[in-house]
Amino acid sequence: MSYLEELKVKIENMFSPEKCYFPKENLLSFLVSNSEVRGALSYLKDVEGFKHFVMLSCVDWLEEGKFELVYIVWHPEKKVNAMVKTKIDREKAEFQSLHDMWRQICTYEREIWEMFGVNFIGHPRLEPFILEDWKDMPPMRRDFDTLHYVNEHYEWREGREESYKPRDYIGEAFDEWRKK
């Protein structure tokens, strides 16, 4: 039994993960409730030795009405990753800030606040980061219509719409290739 399989058993005993599986070799992924995130990350960091924080990402599940926050950590000695996920409500997008565990979470949370509009409670510096002077809804949300926004704000150069469409061409070529 490898280290990650042992870890999976421990996690299943300690927390109540919904989906606990291996998306690929040396990566363990599990979904926990909101209140268990800090506990799970603390356990991975302090007890198991996942010292390095890789990234924090956000996934927009529009149909479910949820945002999924994904925390990825890395074990430098065992050379394995662990992925802690949690789902928060999309309408009232709020979550606790975890910047006290790893300093670099600050920057990730600031970006997610800007791009998805998730409010991190207790974050020291929630202010515009990449976008300057942005007034619309956060642009990485899936219900943000980029084409509509572009039509409203920018001017098209004439002739663009008559040009040939690469998607059609690639489609035909792909079909021909499939027939062979």
Binding site: T146, V150, Y154, E155, R157, R160
Partner: peptide, 14 residues
Amino acid sequence: NGGMYWDSYNTIKK
């Protein structure tokens, strides 16, 4: 004319 970023919300087209 925007190139491959033709429908991007933050790149200019002309």
